[in-house]
Amino acid sequence: MSRETIEDYLFPALMLVIAIAAWEAYVRLAHVPSFLLPAPSEVMTTLIQDWSTLFASLLITLMTTFEALLAAMIGGVALALIFHLWRPLERAFFPFAVILQVTPVISIAPLLLVYLSSGEAVLVCAFLVAFFPILSNTALGLASADHNLIDLFELYGASSWQQLRLLRMPAALPYFLGGLRIGGGLSLVGAIVAEIAAGSAGSGSGLAYRIVESGFRLNIPRMFAALFLISITGILIFLFFTALTYMLLHRWHDSMRARER
């Protein structure tokens, strides 16, 4: 094993193991009651015991996140394209997008629950937070094609469709993927926030609802188990988009240069 491999993978892994072991040791040695802080081993036991309930909730949260992200992706890219093709519309619509972005989603969630069912409200929240980064990044990407290349396309009499397809879209791809990575993480946050709001109102079925429910019942190990699954979900979303970005950009984009030493 080379020195780099040890530094890159072994040390972080070791740190993680040490942290978990220290947690376990502290709980056992100080006799911390599990309704205050459960040991990692107890969290794992709970995870296995309550797997059917928790897994059902995980699927619901995952589906919501995925649907919201898909809608945000389609909506964000479509709107960015429309903005690009017709500038005045961008000026007209951008304030709305900004208002939606700067208003914290947690403050909208209770209102949405008035108008929508809890499932719908969660979906809309997750969509709202993921939509803006995808829209603004894609719009920026479409506007940032190399000026000399634009001249070249003009020189050869390219149609606007050719310019969009062969120049603007590939130039926007790295920006779009950046927006997607941010949006992916945020849509999970949006879904969780809305589920908690819905959970406080006594309805829901996602992972965050399980956290609220377990809190009411003082079932702290289950809270940790649900939290663990949410973290794993977030990590998986992040890894998925990092892999997708690498797959699409590693041949040509400068952001990938450091990877080939």
């Binding site: 396309f153 062969l166 590939p170 040509w252």
Partner: peptide, 19 residues
């Protein structure tokens, strides 16, 4: 002023492709 996302062939093909 090459398109970084295209390989050498596709870059040289561009003027023909646009036609």
């Amino acid at each position: 002023t090459l398109a970084p996302w295209s390989d050498v062939f596709d870059n040289v093909w561009l003027p023909l492709r646009l036609n």
